[in-house]
Design a protein around this nucleic acid. Structure first.
Lengths: 197, 197
DNA sequence: TACTACTGACCAACGGTCATTCGATCGATC
DNA sequence: GATCGATCGAATGACCGTTGGTCAGTAGTA
C-alpha cells in the first residue's frame, strides 16, 4: 500500500538547506516532547513531513542527526564569545564573564533541550563541537595569562576543567534564579583573575 | 528443540549475587572491547554464559543494567572520600585533596570504561548515583566553610560546579601524566581554601 | 528524455516477554 | 541410608513488535 501523502506539506521539492532545517527542527521538537528514549527516525521523518529515507539523504545515521543538532547548538553558544574575543578594549575578565553569561543564557533559553542533548547519547558523537568550545577557552586563558591578568599555568587543563564545570549548575538550578554572577565568580577564582589595571 | 548447553559454564544454578556480578562483568568487558554502540543484551548474555532472559531476571532493562554498572563505579569512587570525611584530625583542605585524588585515581584505573560509562547513554539513568557524589561534596564544602577554612557562599552550586569540572581533565589527558596536583590546585582555588591555622 | 530529490516496502537486528524446562531440595517410603 | 517423586524457583530461548538503515523504483523538473 502506498504511503499516505495527505499530511505532507505543500512543497515536495525543497532547497537542501530548508529540508535539513526541517528535519533538525522536527528532531528538536520531538526530543522536547517525548524525550530521548522515544526518539525514532521514523518519528522525525513523519514530523518533518518527509519519508524516512529522506532523513538518510541528509544525515548518515541517527547518531549523526543528533550530533548535527548538538553542533548547531554549540555554534550558537560560541558565536557571542567569539565576537568578544575579537572585540578590542575589553579586559580579559570581561571577556571571560561574557563567555560565561553567553553559555548560561544559551542553556537557559532552551533549557530542556540542552539538558537532553548534552546528556548525550552514547559515545563520542559530541566530542568535536565540544572541543571547539575548549579551543576558544584555551585561547582566552592563554592570552589573558600572557597579559598578566590571569594566572593560568596550564591553559589546556584549565579549559577542560571549566568547559565541563559550568554545565553542573545549569542542570540543577530552577529556571527562575539567575546563577550567572555566581558562576562568573567561580570562573574568576579558577583563573585567579586579578583586577585589571 | 532444547538449547545447546555444552558451551555453558559449569554451574547452572549460581547464587544471585554471583550471577549479578557475572552479568555486570560481561557488560563492562564488552563495553571496553566494542564500545557502547555495539553493546546488546544478547551479547552480554552470551558473554556471561546465560540466556538473554536471565539478564532480565536481574535487571529491569538495558538502561537499568548500564545504570547499575555506573552506580557500582560511583560506589567505588565515593568509598575513600566518605572515609576521609569521617576521619578526625584532618584539615578540610586535606579532605578535599583526598577526594580529588580518589576520583582521579578511580578514573585512571579504569580509564576507558569510565569514559564510556559517564559519557552516558541517553537520559537520566545516571542521575541518582551522581547526586550521591554531589551530596558528599555539599557536606564537605558546607562544613569546611563553617570551619572558616573555605569561603563557599553557595555550597550547592559550587558542588554542582566541581562535580562536573574534574571529569574534563580526566578525559583529555594522556594516561601517563599525573594531573592530580594540578586539579587539586584548581579545586582549592574554587573553594578559596585558606591555609589551616 | 535525462536527471534527481524523494519515496516506502523491505531487511536484519534489537530490546523485551513468557510459557516451558531444568534441577536442587526434601519428606515419604522401602 | 538409599531411592523415589513432588515441589518450586532459577534459567531458558523461541517469539514479538519496533527500530535503524537500505535501495529499487517513482514522481516532478528542466
Amino acid at each position: 500500500m502506498p504511503e499516505d501523502t495527505s499530511a505532507r506539506p505543500a512543497g515536495r521539492f525543497q532547497p537542501p538547506d530548508v529540508r535539513r532545517r526541517q528535519i533538525l527542527d522536527a528532531t528538536a521538537a520531538l526530543l522536547l516532547e517525548d524525550g530521548y528514549e522515544s526518539l525514532t527516525v521514523g518519528g522525525v521523518a513523519a514530523r518533518a513531513g518527509v519519508a524516512k529515507g529522506t532523513v538518510y539523504l541528509y544525515f548518515d545515521s541517527k547518531q549523526a542527526l543528533l550530533a548535527a543538532l548538538q553542533s548547531q547548538m554549540w555554534d550558537r553558544m560560541l558565536q557571542r564569545p567569539t565576537e568578544l574575543l575579537r572585540q578590542p578594549g575589553l579586559t580579559w575578565t570581561e571577556r571571560l564573564d561574557g563567555l560565561v553569561a553567553a553559555w548560561i543564557t544559551a542553556e537557559r533559553d532552551d533549557h530542556e533541550l540542552y539538558h537532553l542533548i548534552f546528556h548525550e547519547p552514547g559515545g563520542t558523537a559530541g566530542e568535536e563541537p565540544m572541543s571547539a568550545a575548549r579551543d576558544l577557552l584555551v585561547t582566552l586563558l592563554t592570552q589573558g595569562h600572557a597579559a598578566g591578568e590571569f594566572d593560568v599555568p596550564d591553559p589546556e587543563l584549565t579549559a577542560d576543567f571549566l568547559s565541563h564545570a559550568y554545565t553542573g549548575p545549569c542542570h540543577h538550578t530552577e529556571a527562575d534564579t539567575d546563577i550567572t554572577p555566581a558562576v562568573q565568580a567561580l570562573f574568576r577564582r579558577v583563573v585567579a583573575a586579578r583586577p585589571p589595571r
